[in-house]
Amino acid sequence: MKATFQVPSITCNHCVDKIEKFVGEIEGVSFIDVSVEKKSVVVEFDAPATQDLIKEALLDAGQEVV
Rank of each mutant, 00 (worst) to 15 (best):
M1N: 13
M1G: 09
M1C: 14
M1F: 07
K2M: 08
K2L: 07
K2H: 07
K2V: 11
A3W: 08
T4R: 09
T4E: 14
T4G: 07
T4I: 14
Q6W: 15
Q6P: 06
V7K: 00
V7T: 05
V7G: 04
P8L: 10
P8N: 10
S9D: 09
S9E: 07
S9W: 14
S9A: 06
S9M: 08
T11L: 09
T11D: 10
T11K: 12
T11G: 08
C12H: 12
C12E: 11
N13R: 14
N13W: 10
N13V: 15
N13M: 14
N13F: 11
N13E: 13
H14E: 15
C15K: 06
V16F: 05
V16S: 06
V16I: 10
D17F: 09
K18E: 07
K18C: 07
K18P: 04
K18V: 11
I19V: 06
I19N: 01
E20R: 14
E20M: 15
E20N: 15
E20D: 05
E20F: 15
E20C: 10
K21N: 06
K21W: 08
K21D: 04
K21R: 11
F22S: 08
F22M: 09
F22H: 11
V23P: 02
V23L: 12
G24F: 08
G24L: 10
G24Q: 07
E25Y: 07
E25R: 14
E25C: 07
E25F: 08
E25Q: 14
E25S: 13
I26L: 09
I26H: 00
I26G: 00
I26D: 01
I26V: 14
E27G: 05
E27A: 10
V29Q: 02
V29E: 00
V29A: 03
V29N: 01
S30M: 14
S30W: 11
F31I: 08
F31K: 14
F31S: 11
I32G: 02
I32K: 00
I32P: 01
D33Y: 15
V34E: 03
V34A: 06
V34R: 00
V34G: 02
S35T: 03
S35K: 05
S35W: 04
V36A: 04
V36K: 05
V36T: 05
V36R: 04
V36D: 02
E37R: 08
K38M: 12
K38E: 09
K38C: 12
K39G: 10
K39L: 07
S40T: 15
S40V: 14
S40R: 14
V41I: 09
V41M: 04
V41P: 01
V43H: 01
V43Y: 00
V43N: 01
V43S: 01
V43I: 06
E44T: 12
E44R: 11
E44K: 09
E44W: 15
E44P: 02
E44Y: 15
F45W: 13
F45Q: 02
D46N: 13
D46F: 13
D46I: 13
D46P: 02
A47C: 09
A47Y: 13
A47G: 05
A47I: 08
A47R: 09
A47L: 13
P48Y: 00
P48G: 01
P48S: 02
P48C: 01
A49R: 01
A49N: 03
A49G: 02
A49Q: 03
A49T: 03
A49E: 02
T50R: 03
T50K: 02
Q51H: 14
Q51E: 14
Q51A: 14
Q51F: 14
Q51I: 15
D52W: 08
D52Q: 13
D52E: 13
D52P: 05
L53G: 05
I54L: 04
I54K: 01
I54T: 02
I54S: 01
I54M: 01
K55I: 15
K55C: 09
K55W: 14
E56G: 12
E56R: 15
E56L: 14
E56N: 13
A57C: 03
A57W: 00
A57V: 05
L58C: 00
L58R: 01
L58A: 01
L59I: 13
L59G: 06
D60A: 15
D60E: 13
A61D: 01
A61W: 08
A61Q: 04
A61C: 14
A61F: 08
G62K: 04
G62A: 08
G62D: 06
Q63T: 06
Q63R: 07
Q63L: 15
Q63E: 05
Q63P: 03
Q63V: 13
E64C: 15
E64D: 11
E64G: 06
V65Q: 06
V65H: 06
V65W: 08
V65L: 08
V66T: 11
V66R: 09
V66N: 08
V66K: 09
